[in-house]
């Protein structure tokens, strides 16, 4: 199940993974953020990417989505090499993402923020189609659906800057979904959410996967990772130190020392999550 072997067969479309990364490395000056990462994501799965703070998770996401240029290695999306592409071009390949420190157009309404996510789809349509859709306001259907799905209807016309944190996260997820991506990348989508809210997001992500989207999920909430991920990648110091199913990965002694050992030193936000992870074991 290593990435290298799956990339080698581009002709069989079914074999082409949503993302295949080979020997990816990124250095900031002398600091190695991602050292030599190779993996591929199977289609229509949820893969959790976990690791202690500073392990290089967000850097890895920024490399995949084109916000950073890798120092070495290559990235392929659906069999097409996208190494060094700009973010908009990567997005054009059907990749949508959220950001760790929530990026929204603060002075715009919730509906407009979601509409921005539809841009790629609208842009690709022919001019004639666009002209025909002029009066029907293209993209509105998508926005309407997402407002319902993410329970944002009553704030649709509100400025996002005024919304509470959890809601802002949901707007970001809605914007990513508006692009109907084939690869959805979520960077700590449930940070700062209540337990009920994060469970809801978990169910939503599962629905998204079932509808045919591959999901890459960076998450500190261990309970959620156990509950929804098909597979888990563990990143430490810019290296993948383990890859296994969501249940078994915790048994790996390397992971225990590297990741769980580190978590005791973290702030209260992730502390309870770990305990919850233990208690809701059966549920997962």
């Amino acid at each position: 199940m290593t990435g290298a072997s799956t990339v080698a067969s581009p002709e069989g479309l079914a074999d082409v993974p949503a993302v295949a990364i080979e020997n990816l490395g990124k250095r900031f000056g002398g600091v190695v953020a991602v050292s030599d990462v190779t993996f591929a994501l199977s289609d229509e799965t949820i893969t959790g990417l976990i690791g202690p703070n500073g392990a290089g998770k967000t850097t890895l996401l920024n490399l995949i989505t084109g916000y950073l240029k890798p120092t070495s290695g290559s990235i392929a999306i659906k069999g097409k090499t996208v190494t060094g592409w700009l973010p908009h071009a990567v997005a054009g390949m059907g990749v949508a993402r959220t950001y760790q420190n929530i990026l929204l157009l603060d002075s715009e309404t919730v509906a407009t923020n979601i509409l921005i996510g539809c841009h790629g789809a609208l842009q690709r349509r022919r001019l004639v189609t666009r002209a025909k859709e002029w009066r029907s306001r293209p993209g509105r259907d998508v926005v309407e659906r997402l407002l319902t799905v993410l329970n944002l209807r009553e704030v649709a016309k509100d400025e996002v800057a005024q919304l509470p944190y959890g809601m802002r996260r949901r707007v970001e997820i809605a914007r990513a979904l508006a692009a109907s991506p084939s690869l959805l990348i979520l960077d700590e989508p449930t940070a700062g959410m209540t337990r009920d809210e994060s469970d809801e997001i978990g169910r939503l992500v599962q629905q998204v996967r079932d509808a045919g989207t591959t999901v890459l999920l960076v998450e500190h909430n261990v309970r959620l990772v156990r509950a929804i991920c098909d597979e888990v990648l563990v990143l430490q110091w810019g290296n993948i130190i383990a890859r296994d199913s969501a249940e078994r990965v915790w048994d790996d002694p390397v992971v225990r020392t590297a990741y769980l050992g580190d978590m005791e030193g973290q702030e209260s936000e992730t502390g309870p999550a770990k305990q919850e992870g233990g208690t809701t074991n059966a549920g997962a």
């Binding site: 908009h88 157009l105 921005i116 790629g120 842009q123 666009r130 993209g139 692009a179």
Partner: peptide, 26 residues
């Protein structure tokens, strides 16, 4: 009113968001 205008405004408000949504900023 069109998506072009929306894209232009998005670029002003946050280039990273615009690029992430597939808007060719350049």
């Amino acid at each position: 009113l069109s998506f072009v205008g929306r894209a232009l405004r998005a670029i002003r408000l946050d280039e990273r968001v615009a690029a992430g949504a597939g808007i060719n900023v350049a």
